[in-house]
Design a binder for these strands. Sequence first.
DNA 1: CTACAAGCTCAACTTAACTTGAGGTCAAGC
DNA 2: GCTTGACCTCAAGTTAAGTTGAGCTTGTAG
Lengths: 147, 147
Amino acid sequence: MAPATELTVGQVAMRSGVAVSALHFYETRGLIRSHRTAGNQRRYSRDVLRRVAIIRVAQEVGISLSEIAAALQSLPEGRTPTREDWNLLSTAWRDGLDHKIAQLKKLRDGLSDCIGCGCMSIDKCPLRNKEDRLAREGTGARRLIAS
Amino acid sequence: MAPATELTVGQVAMRSGVAVSALHFYETRGLIRSHRTAGNQRRYSRDVLRRVAIIRVAQEVGISLSEIAAALQSLPEGRTPTREDWNLLSTAWRDGLDHKIAQLKKLRDGLSDCIGCGCMSIDKCPLRNKEDRLAREGTGARRLIAS
DNA sequence: CTACAAGCTCAACTTAACTTGAGGTCAAGC
DNA sequence: GCTTGACCTCAAGTTAAGTTGAGCTTGTAG
């Protein structure tokens, strides 16, 4: 038969490398959507794979699911996202991502730079300044992203 | 008096923007060290500030405390780290950090690139390929870093 | 038409990373 | 010399992000 346009949860799990239970979980959190067959089974459209890919990559760099969810809100519910839609998402994230990239580079280069630069007196260390907003309060696990 | 070389936990908390309870916690996890006064209070040497700064930056980009702890092991216990010591640490992390930076750039640029490139068929999407090791097993919260 | 793999739901458990609270000690000012 | 704010310890609570398991339904291959 022609390749079904709809995917079962198992197929999505296999192709995305994410556990079925995680897909269920993402759905409860509004990160992905499915519709049901007559027999109450989930069916996903193909673009869920891209969503999941983005979710995983974003998570790997320390973005929380709720932030990812917020970003994914900009994608349309009814139809497969167009390039315009994806563009919106990526520009929405650009600032936060730029910040993170900068942080990573500071860690990677800055770390040794900073050492070479003689600022062992921490106070003017580039790793430290500007980031003092870390002092914010919050309960439970600290969020891993501060953007 | 001359500025005391030793810091109390409160001072470290204030200057680093990290809660006292978090500092205690880091200590139990071996991320930082202190010695005690006659009255059993913690005293930290100045370089703890740099350690904490690194811990926070690393966390922000999704590196787990245990990985940070492992990396910090390369720093000497007895003395203030030299530039050599820090250099070792940063080169130890370089590969992992490079990977993360690449991931972030994929998210930032690749996201829109990828859309422009017509690979809406996900299967050859640069966000997806090569990363299929995500299928690994594990219990509890998934680690946020895969390097 | 009957196995049996794949799905479904819901509650409970797990890990990481902290925070909160209770109950008690230490120290600098008035 | 006492009070008040920093510290200390230890146990228990919290949030995020899932996983695990029990009990039940679906769907497909022989």
